[in-house]
């Protein structure tokens, strides 16, 4: 009796994780197939494919429902469903780190969604598999399969632009030199994701001062974004395309930074307004969740660089 109880509890953890790996494998296979049909929509730079909505919502829901199937005779209260689902989430996240080579920041970002959906699935499954449920709610599994299939075969393409502005108390020609390249940033990180290990920008270098010249944006972990200037108008505008981005697990297959831009405006009173723009393409869906993070991270990269430019410009006036 006791052994059977433990076996059901364990199966409620092992089987859902196996199911999730199978579904992720299917989604990867389907996306790989779609890449052969239409590369641009599905492949990030370096050939890594996108993660669709189903991976973060439908698969965890199915995991939760599968767990509930094995736990149905254990007489669990709601609170036990939450605690055991939490363990399931931790295992799923660990497996993502091992098999999908996900970085810690990505896992922090997705874990609330995964946990919420696994618990929801467990709650739904709890009622579905109740002995006194005469409807079984089997339509739910059908709906999930339809969503999963429709999601795989629907178009996934999303680009966005983030804009930030700062006023610097220095003349435009002073500001311009630090916009193009700047000495290492030594100020403490004040964005929580940078504090927990996400790389932050520390320096920018250039190999020329003209259109076509190369620029490098160096991050705190040593990774470098290679950039090529496409607009170089001293004291007005610097626009550059990203030609190569680091093969970092936090970035690879999730986001492509496409272009960066600084626009300077002389305010006529000894101050300068600097506008920073970045364009990126997301490969993780749904965008209504992941773009919140992408915007926040891009904004804080902007602000860290622009605050540094402000400090350098105002100190050396």
């Amino acid at each position: 009796m006791y052994q059977s109880r433990n076996a059901k509890l364990t199966l409620g953890i092992i089987v859902p994780n196996f199911v999730s790996l199978t579904f992720i494998g299917i989604s990867k296979f389907a996306v790989d197939l779609l890449i052969k049909i239409k590369t641009d929509d599905y492949t990030a730079e370096g050939g890594t494919t996108l993660f669709v909505f189903s991976v973060f919502f439908v698969i965890p829901l199915v995991m939760g429902i599968t767990s509930a199937y094995f736990w149905k005779d254990l007489g669990f209260k709601n609170i036990r469903y939450v605690t055991w689902s939490l363990l399931n989430t931790l295992i799923a996240i660990l497996m993502s780190a091992i098999f999908l080579k996900e970085g810690i920041i990505c896992l922090i970002i997705v874990s609330p969604v995964i946990f919420g959906c696994i618990v929801s699935g467990a709650f739904i499954g709890k009622v579905m598999f109740r002995r006194k449920n005469n409807t079984l709610n089997s339509s739910i599994i059908g709906i999930l399969l339809v969503i999963f299939s429709a999601d795989l075969f629907s178009k996934h393409q999303y680009t966005n632009k983030v804009t930030d502005t700062i006023i610097i108390n220095a003349p435009i020609n002073k500001v311009w030199q630090y916009v193009v390249e700047y000495a290492p940033i030594t100020e403490k990180e004040n964005y929580w994701l940078f504090q927990v290990g996400m790389p932050s920008p520390i320096q920018s270098t250039v190999d020329g001062h003209c259109v076509g010249a190369g620029r490098k944006c160096i991050f705190s972990n040593g990774y470098t974004f290679d950039e090529k200037m496409i607009v170089y108008k001293p004291n007005q505008e610097l626009t550059f395309d990203i030609t190569n981005q680091p093969r970092d697990p936090e970035i690879m297959g999730h986001i492509d930074i496409l272009r960066g831009q600084f626009i300077l405006k002389d305010n006529g009173n000894g101050t300068t307004t600097v506008t920073g723009n970045s364009w990126y393409k997301l490969y993780v869906f749904p965008v209504w969740y992941f773009d919140i993070w992408a915007e926040s991270i891009t904004r804080n990269v902007h602000l860290r660089v622009m605050e540094h430019i402000k400090t350098l410009s105002e100190t050396n006036v």
Partner: peptide, 23 residues
Amino acid sequence: LLPHLFDSFMKISILFSNKHTLD
């Protein structure tokens, strides 16, 4: 499924505000 997801998230949130309700 949206109402069920919403209901589950309410259940998670009530765990922190008044977990006796779930009991």
